[in-house]
Design a protein around this nucleic acid. Structure first.
Lengths: 167, 167
DNA sequence: ATAAACTTTCATTTTTTTTTGAAAGTTTAA
DNA sequence: TTAAACTTTCAAAAAAAAATGAAAGTTTAT
């Protein structure tokens, strides 16, 4: 396999993976392209490489910047804008999970808290509802915190983990 | 807020969360409904409660069973089938992550391995590509293993963790 | 102030995904 | 074996999501 073919395969795969996880295909593809590029790319070149329209490129680049995982760059003497991706994978993971937490998990948690707080009349149906939604709230809350913990423990994590667990 | 309203809100929220994570809305809603129900529900009742067609109900129930998070049940004397959801949340998380790993992560890893294995000519572009995809492969592989580890360590996890880390 | 170089916006079109519903299939009971 | 009670399948329809492209907007240079 040669470079161009491999790059294309990677971009396609990353795009497909993205859509399976609720991220639009083009957004994931642009991100893939920028991740494996050693130098900033212009919008023109992105459009060209992915065969997409100017509007599509513009909107998805904006979305990627909103997620904090793609940056705009300016080259001296050049009028147009160039783009780069966050290439540190730990940083990337932290940013993605922060955004997903903020946009999706936190609002869902709020609803879970609300619905689990109803006054149950003592029927089995209502008791089970309250019980299950309460458990779900606790579970999601815990899961939502896991990535923050991982970040926090990133360096010297075992020692810190043990300390945290003991106290 | 009363029971019916709360239940509906929960089902809607769970459905919305599902679609943001690449799971179709109806599938997530059916799952939500079964999760908070204290007794098995028939297809008829699911169709009725979610206002969906028979075909839709049938297909999404099958999908949920394929994921291993919804079970068919038979009631004595009743001809029709009833459905229940896995209600243990740890079990649920394990099953979902196993499936997503099998269906999405593992195939992606295979491609990542392939594309990172190209023979780089020495240009900066190709060197960066190989370097970045290799890192990504390692990262995804590690992340993919995290949930297995969590399962494994579920009981008495700190002790086991320390042992594992030391040896 | 004008125009060139570039980016963003958004109504419309296209594509993709999901849903429907009726026909075909299956199981059980008599 | 027949028919009633139920489930599955899948082509067609509907709905939802994404992409287009041209007009509007912005910035920079002269």
């Amino acid at each position: 396999m040669e470079f161009k073919e491999a790059k294309n395969k990677f971009v396609q795969t990353w795009g497909a993976l993205g859509s399976q996880w609720g991220i639009n295909k083009t957004m994931a593809q642009i991100h893939a392209l920028l991740m494996v590029s050693h130098e900033p790319i212009s919008m023109e070149d992105i459009m060209d490489e992915l065969q997409i329209s100017r509007g599509n490129a513009s909107m998805n680049l904006r979305a990627l910047m909103d997620w904090g995982i793609v940056y705009k760059e300016y080259k001296a003497g050049e009028r147009k804008e160039f783009f780069t991706a966050e290439k540190d994978l730990d940083e990337l993971a932290v940013k993605i999970s922060r955004e997903r937490s903020k946009r999706e998990i936190k609002p869902a948690l709020k609803i879970l808290k609300e619905v689990s707080a109803i006054e149950s009349d003592g029927t089995a149906a209502e008791k089970h509802f309250v019980d299950q939604t309460t458990k779900l709230y606790d579970f999601v809350l815990k899961a939502d915190n896991v990535l923050d913990k991982i970040t926090e423990f990133k360096d010297n994590w075992l020692a810190k983990l043990v300390v945290k667990m003991i106290k």
